[in-house]
Amino acid sequence: KRPMNAFMVWARIHRPALAKANPAANNAEISVQLGLEWNKLSEEQKKPYYDEAQKIKEKHREEFPGW
Rank of each mutant, 00 (worst) to 15 (best):
G35S: 14
F64D: 12
K1N: 14
N5E: 13
E43N: 07
L34C: 04
E44P: 06
K55H: 07
R15N: 01
A6N: 03
I30N: 00
R15I: 00
W67K: 15
Y50M: 07
E43S: 06
R12M: 11
R61F: 13
E43K: 12
E29R: 02
G66E: 14
S42M: 03
R12Q: 14
G66Y: 07
R12V: 06
V9E: 11
I56K: 11
A11P: 00
H60D: 14
E63N: 15
A19F: 09
L34F: 00
E37S: 05
K46P: 00
W67Y: 07
N26D: 11
H14Q: 10
Q45E: 10
N39G: 11
E37I: 02
I13N: 09
I13A: 11
P65Q: 10
S31Q: 14
M4S: 05
R12S: 11
Y49Q: 00
R12L: 09
P16V: 10
K40H: 04
I56W: 15
N5W: 05
M8Y: 02
R12T: 13
Y50G: 03
M8G: 14
W38E: 02
G35V: 11
E43V: 10
V32G: 10
G66I: 11
Q54T: 08
L18A: 05
N39F: 07
I30Y: 01
K59V: 12
L36T: 12
S31K: 14
E43T: 10
R61W: 08
N22H: 15
K59F: 09
A21S: 10
R61D: 11
E37A: 12
A11L: 02
A17W: 10
Q33N: 12
E37Q: 07
G66M: 08
I30F: 02
K20I: 15
K57D: 11
P23R: 03
D51H: 08
A19D: 06
I30W: 02
E37T: 07
K40M: 07
A19M: 14
G66A: 13
H14W: 04
Y49S: 00
K46V: 02
H14P: 01
A6S: 03
N39W: 01
V9Q: 03
L18E: 02
N5F: 05
N26L: 06
F7A: 04
E37L: 10
A6D: 01
H14R: 15
G35H: 10
E37D: 06
V9N: 08
K20H: 03
F64M: 14
W38C: 01
A53W: 04
N26A: 11
P16R: 07
N27Y: 12
A17F: 09
F64Q: 06
